[in-house]
């Protein structure tokens, strides 16, 4: 099978959420000696980008996004051993630790942000809902996160977003993380008040913001 055809099938598999085609095409890519990183960049990622665009324009919704991410991961199960054997590294935007804060059981908004982040090249560690501030920080440390993303859907749980930032300060870890906040009652004003690094009104906004803040941070580190 031609290289172009294999890459195209990888893209199609992701767009259609077809796990079997994704696994088969990933295997074909390895058999045809296509660099696995190229299979990701020119095949799988193109599919993710296409679905991302559909989501942005309202042509598809959360279920399709989750299926896309699952299909991507199905192909990665085949490609990963080859990447490790070649001592290569998958390019990723950064590691995001995401959670809904203490006392809050809302999860759909968080799941949408997590999935959109994932389909945009971030590694996402989702620790779920109703998470204590200390557990969030512990998970960020354990997973070497770059970003802590905090969701809150109630006015009575927003103060826990503030608490995470205050505890990070107290532990002298604040500068280590970019802290993003979001959720129905959350606003830019609130983000400024609690000294968060940013507020995303939508999942798409959160991704753009995360990329910008990470780039700025990398540039600052490079200049230092």
């Amino acid at each position: 099978m031609e290289k172009e055809e294999i890459l195209k099938k990888l893209t199609t598999a992701v767009i259609d959420g077809d796990n079997n085609l994704a696994r088969e095409s990933a295997q074909n890519a390895l058999t045809a000696e296509i660099d696995p990183l190229e299979a990701i960049d020119q095949g799988l990622s193109k599919g993710m980008e296409a679905v991302g665009r559909q989501f942005e324009s309202g042509e598809c919704y959360l279920p399709e996004l989750i299926m896309t991410a699952d299909t991507f991961n199905a192909a990665m199960e085949i490609l990963k051993p080859a990447i490790e054997a070649n001592k290569q590294q998958v390019r990723k935007e950064g590691i995001v630790l995401i959670a809904t804060v203490k006392g809050d059981l809302h999860e759909i908004g968080k799941n949408i942000v997590a999935t959109v982040m994932e389909t945009n090249g971030f590694e996402v560690v989702d620790i779920g809902i109703d998470q204590h501030s200390l557990d969030i920080i512990e998970a960020a440390e354990k997973n070497k996160a770059d970003i802590i993303a905090l969701s809150s859907l109630m006015t009575t749980t927003m103060p826990y977003q503030k608490e995470v930032i205050e505890v990070l300060d107290g532990m002298k870890l604040r500068d280590k993380y970019i802290v993003l906040v979001g959720g129905g009652p959350v606003s830019q004003k609130w983000a400024d008040e609690i000294n968060a690094n940013g507020y995303g009104e939508t999942a798409i906004d959160a991704v753009a913001l995360a990329k910008n803040l990470l780039n700025n941070r990398k540039q600052t580190v490079a200049m230092d």
């Binding site: 203490k102 006392g103 809050d104 109630m154 006015t155 009575t156 749980t157 103060p159 826990y160």
Partner: peptide, 18 residues
């Protein structure tokens, strides 16, 4: 209405202030 604070103390879910 939902009160968001009592005597200036922010209402936090699950706390006695709630």
């Amino acid at each position: 209405s939902a009160l968001d604070s009592i005597r200036g103390i922010l209402v936090m879910a699950g706390s006695p202030v709630e």
